[in-house]
């Protein structure tokens, strides 16, 4: 048999893994036991963390990449892909995460930014990256840097869906607007957005992002998941919403149920009925001072 040429970690491999996670739920977990609960509930992937965003918010201090023992313990415990977070711009944390073999890196505003001017050059890595955005221009800058998946930021650890809704609506409505522009308007649009022209031009013709677009930040109930899915999110991240609730296993299953059948209200109702305890306590985002807002980190 002749030797078959192999290309490793191509752009299609990176975006391909993101495609495989579509229509699924990615759950924040802080230990192997939680990771098993998430996998058993039907999560497509878990995000390995030392503290969930709600605790980061409460305890304050500098939030960094998780202890490697925590991440590796979670990688041992489950067969689904494992993600981990690095700080914005902290490419050395990203290098460490890549070297231990995590499947996806989230360059995340939930951690304390390490660089106030530059994000990580994600093209330089073999492992795929996901990045947060609050609008389309931010999404395109991250894709330009090599992000293979985008998630709208929402307001992590708030248990409040309002920011997630604001961000997914902003992305989707701007996508729609681009498809209505004439070709001779696209360069000025790219300039005004501060986004790469080639990507703006591509999207004006396809009407969709070149990588999957998921939703994060504030999803606490099955109905929250159904809401962002109907607004255009292709999958959902649930952070504090599961393990800060009173009934993590049931809630994890219910959110998976509602994410799968998001367009069928009778099924979402069934998912809601399966819950046994209260959702996490939420925060009215309007009362959060500017410096405590995570979504404003990154640019």
């Amino acid at each position: 048999m002749c030797e078959q040429a192999v290309d490793k970690s191509t752009w299609r491999n990176k975006v391909g893994l993101a495609e495989m996670l579509r229509n699924g739920v990615i759950m924040d977990v802080t230990n192997a036991e939680q990771a098993k609960i998430a996998e058993d509930a039907g999560a497509v992937s878990v995000m390995a963390l030392e503290r969930v965003p709600a605790d980061i918010r409460k305890e304050g201090g500098v939030a960094r990449m998780a202890d490697l023992k925590v991440i590796e313990g979670i990688m041992e415990a489950v067969t689904i892909p494992v993600m981990a977070k690095c700080r914005i711009g902290h490419f050395a944390e990203a290098q460490v995460l890549e070297s231990i073999g995590v499947d996806f890196i989230d360059e995340s505003e939930v951690l304390t930014p390490a660089d106030e001017s530059f994000h990580v050059d994600k093209h330089a890595f073999k492992v795929p990256f996901v990045c947060g955005c609050t609008n389309l221009a931010e999404a395109l800058r991250r894709i330009g840097e090599g992000a293979a998946m985008i998630r709208t930021k929402g307001e992590a650890g708030s248990g409040n869906i309002v920011e997630a809704v604001r961000h997914i609506r902003a992305v989707v409505s701007h996508l729609r607007k681009l498809t209505t522009l004439r070709d001779d308007e696209l360069m000025t649009e790219a300039k005004n957005m501060g986004a790469p022209y080639e990507l703006v031009k591509e999207i004006a013709h396809t009407g969709k992002l070149p990588v999957p677009n998921f939703s994060a930040g504030g999803i606490a109930t099955p109905a929250d998941a159904a809401l962002v899915r109907q607004l255009g999110a292709e999958a959902v991240f649930v952070g504090s919403g599961i393990f800060k609730s009173e009934d993590p296993a049931a809630r994890a299953q219910a959110i998976v149920h509602a994410t799968t059948y998001y367009e069928d209200p009778a099924e979402v109702a069934k998912a809601c009925r399966g819950l046994e305890g209260a959702a996490m306590v939420g925060i009215d985002v309007r009362t959060l001072p500017e410096e405590e807002r995570l979504a404003t980190r990154g640019w």
Partner: peptide, 8 residues
């Protein structure tokens, strides 16, 4: 794992 994914 993911970093070993490939095309051929």
């Amino acid at each position: 794992r993911q970093v070993d994914s490939f095309e051929t």
